[in-house]
Design a protein around this nucleic acid. Structure first.
Length: 288
DNA sequence: CACCATGTTCCTTG
DNA sequence: CCAAGGAACATGGT
């Protein structure tokens, strides 16, 4: 369920529910997700700790945990949902889901991280945050900075955006959406974007992400339920799909008319990921 | 069986 | 050292 907006909405949901609660017991069910740290070690470090702030950086969730006793330092658990991860609180007696990766006993409730595809993470290694670019919704993300980061790259601009070093948190869906809104071809070499297009692209990235967060925040969420597909095409149900269709203008619309000019939307593959774009609204020669 | 899927990391090559 | 390309990871849906 990732991409920055989904993670942001999840963090806002979890932060007030976790703050101040103590971990009575921690269990790692899928050792792979804790990576550099042994499962037993993580379980031991977490036991007895109390949740402090829960924050987001790019698509990562950061859980600050106060030490159990008076001695010891706070630690930060770095979580990532990968492609299919979910995190939520469930009533204590509820059964663990089939693909539970980590569960934390909080007394009258349980924090669960489940992940069918096991691409997600839950560990103490903060080095994964090292190469990340600026947060797109802060003032650190400037038009000039974006232009500078794209300059001298011959990689297609869409591939460059997915790299996380130019700007953090833009995933496959919103990369296509932002390029569409700014009228820039995803195939264009990044270094060929002038300051004008970079400024438009920055605005579009911020708009697309902010709208998605807004959308998610205004809907009742049920992270403990079965179908938490709030943000995803084909998974949205009932009233959700109305929001969804209005928000995504090109993603997964291959062959359907462009919402601006009715030209059929095209799909191509870049860096082994699907890209969607309108060949007319996003001309390959949009250098200026 | 084939192909597709919201993401990151590691390895190779230039 | 860096940029870029591709495979790998693992499972489920259509």
């Amino acid at each position: 369920m990732p991409e920055l907006p989904e993670v942001e909405v999840l963090v806002r949901h979890l932060a007030p529910r976790l703050r101040g609660r103590t971990i009575r017991n921690a269990q790692v069910h899928l050792g792979k997700v804790v990576r550099p740290n042994a499962a037993a070690e993580l379980e031991q470090v977490l036991r007895g700790r109390t949740f402090g702030e829960v924050r987001r950086r790019a698509k990562y969730l950061l859980f600050e945990l106060e030490p159990a006793g008076r001695k010891g330092e706070p630690v930060t658990v770095v979580g990532h949902l990968g492609m299919t991860g979910r995190m939520y609180l469930q009533p204590g007696p509820a059964p663990l889901p089939k693909h539970a990766a980590v569960s934390l006993d909080l007394g009258d409730a349980r924090f669960v991280f489940e992940d069918v595809r096991r691409f997600g993470r839950f560990h103490l290694d903060k080095t994964v945050l090292d190469g990340l670019g600026p947060e797109p919704l802060t003032d650190e993300f400037t038009p000039e900075g974006l232009a500078g980061a794209l300059a001298r790259s011959r990689q297609p601009v869409k591939v460059k955006l997915l790299g996380q070093s130019v700007v953090a948190g833009v995933g496959n869906i919103y990369a296509s959406e932002a390029l569409f809104r700014s009228g820039i071809s995803p195939l264009l070499p990044a270094g060929r974007l002038g300051q004008g297009p970079c400024t438009r692209l920055r605005e579009a990235i911020r708009e697309v992400l902010a709208e998605a967060i807004e959308c998610g925040s205004t809907l009742p969420l049920d992270f403990a339920g079965g179908a938490g597909g709030l943000f995803y095409y084909g998974l949205a149900s009932g009233g959700d799909s109305v929001f969804y269709q209005e928000r995504l203008r090109v993603y997964d619309r291959e062959g359907l008319p462009c919402v601006n000019c009715a030209t059929p939307v095209r799909r191509c593959v870049q860096a082994a990921r699907s890209t969607f774009y309108c060949p007319r609204c996003q001309p390959a020669r949009s250098a200026r």
